[in-house]
Design a protein around this nucleic acid. Structure first.
Lengths: 243, 243
DNA sequence: GGGACGGGCGTACGGTGTGCGATTGCGCCG
DNA sequence: CGGCGCAATCGCACACCGTACGCCCGTCCC
């Protein structure tokens, strides 16, 4: 059986249909409505029926423009990555700050759309979306102009991105459960305190850390933690460039 | 029917023994059955009905041991983190290799259970599971014995963990789509090639990177990439300890 | 004018998580 | 030893999901 006998399950491999006119429903409309739905009501609110209702369309009308729900999600995720900003090295004052700015923008974007943590598993080849490609290429350019070899730039970018995605999706998952519970961050922490205290009873180091964390502003703590880790990763990147 | 289910008086008088042989549902049983289901058939196969069938139980019988599906997933995820190994500094030869060993074990664990990328969004407070706590405490101990302040150790651990989670869940998502498509990694790359080539047409740096990647063994490339980024992050951590 | 065609939609099918009330069998108490 | 309470289990039902399929209708090409 030849390898390409069945279509690849990703949007980016599917040829886009040429359209002569402007029909009622369009792919862009569908994607932006889905994005709005996800942002406003969370991942549980995105169903094809609901999306159809928002667009004054039937439940199955979207399937003309989008192969299935997974493909729709791929498109929405790429749309989100389109919001990430990449400052030039000149603007930011050096490649390090440019990459840091991109990392901050990426984290902010992911936290603005925290449902993204829930769809991470359905998006197998995020890196082929046009917005992701443009983003990647831009950062590569910044690094290359700063004297990185292309392969070294790619590795550095992969590392930083992995860090940002890891910390941001963890934060996003946390923020999602928080939002679902209807509590604030402090309020939740207080409610959880007894259970947490019991859980760390046999772990002296964690007990100390939890106690210290008790009175800190959780949001600010997360920001600082992100910055600290980012600085750490960038230190590593810088050290490897100098080698 | 087995021979020992004959209607002997003893059997009828003591049905308890039958119960002992096939004990009632327990939380541990449910979690381990769910884990097996997830590993063998992926995240789509885990439904309460299916799980009940596997356990020779009714669809809703699990709800006496587990509040809902999300809670079940929290339990399964903690179970998975229980597989991560933390070598001692003595075994590994220094804190750096101990942490690296833990990171490698963590990645291997996540890739052994790639469905974990799909449930990342439903697990808001993973860090309170007993296995996660034990794991965290152990690494903190390793770092503290190496001379880290407790807070510095916590920050370092957060950074490394974010990196490992970020890169591993991306890989896991990729492996999942791959498995669903029924193709091998090379085969997929070949099938995707035309689309990828078209997508990077306007991105010269990506074009170079993609072309270079074309003939490499994808699995080995991912391993190397992980090791490289890990070394980078650990360099940053080491630098911050020294200062 | 007629025919092909493509977008849109209604219906239907086989699934999902889980609330609820009935049932059942075990352990304890009288 | 009889009866009772109670927790575990189950069957059913509900609302909702993704989406395959066939029908309708408006538009364009010949």
């Amino acid at each position: 059986m030849p390898a390409d006998s069945q279509p690849l399950p990703t949007v980016w491999a599917r040829p886009r249909r040429e359209r002569r006119e402007q029909p009622a429903l369009s792919r862009a409309q569908i994607v932006s409505a889905a994005l709005r739905l996800l942002d406003e009501e969370g991942v549980g609110a995105l169903s094809m029926r609901r999306l159809g209702a928002v667009l004054n369309a039937g439940a199955t009308s979207m399937y003309t423009h989008v192969a299935n729900k997974d493909e729709l999600i791929e498109l929405v995720v790429d749309e989100v990555y389109g919001e990430v900003e990449v400052p030039s090295a000149a603007e930011a004052g050096g490649w390090r700050e440019a990459v840091a700015g991109c990392a901050r923008s990426m984290r902010a974007t992911l936290l603005r759309h925290p449902w993204i943590a829930s769809v991470q598993g359905e998006v197998g080849v995020a890196y082929l979306g046009p917005n992701v490609l443009r983003l990647w290429e831009r950062v590569l350019a910044v690094l290359e102009e700063a004297g990185f070899e292309l392969e070294a730039a790619d590795r550095a970018l992969n590392t930083v991105t992995a860090y940002v995605i890891g910390i941001s999706t963890s934060e996003a998952a946390w923020l999602t459960t928080l939002a679902r519970s209807g509590r604030g961050e402090q309020e939740w922490a207080r409610a959880l305190w007894p259970a947490a205290e019991a859980a760390v009873r046999d772990h002296p180091r964690l007990r100390v850390l939890y106690a210290a964390r008790r009175d800190r502003d959780a949001g600010r703590a997360r920001d600082e933690e992100f910055e600290d880790g980012l600085a750490c990763v960038l230190d590593g990147v810088a050290a490897r460039q100098a080698n």
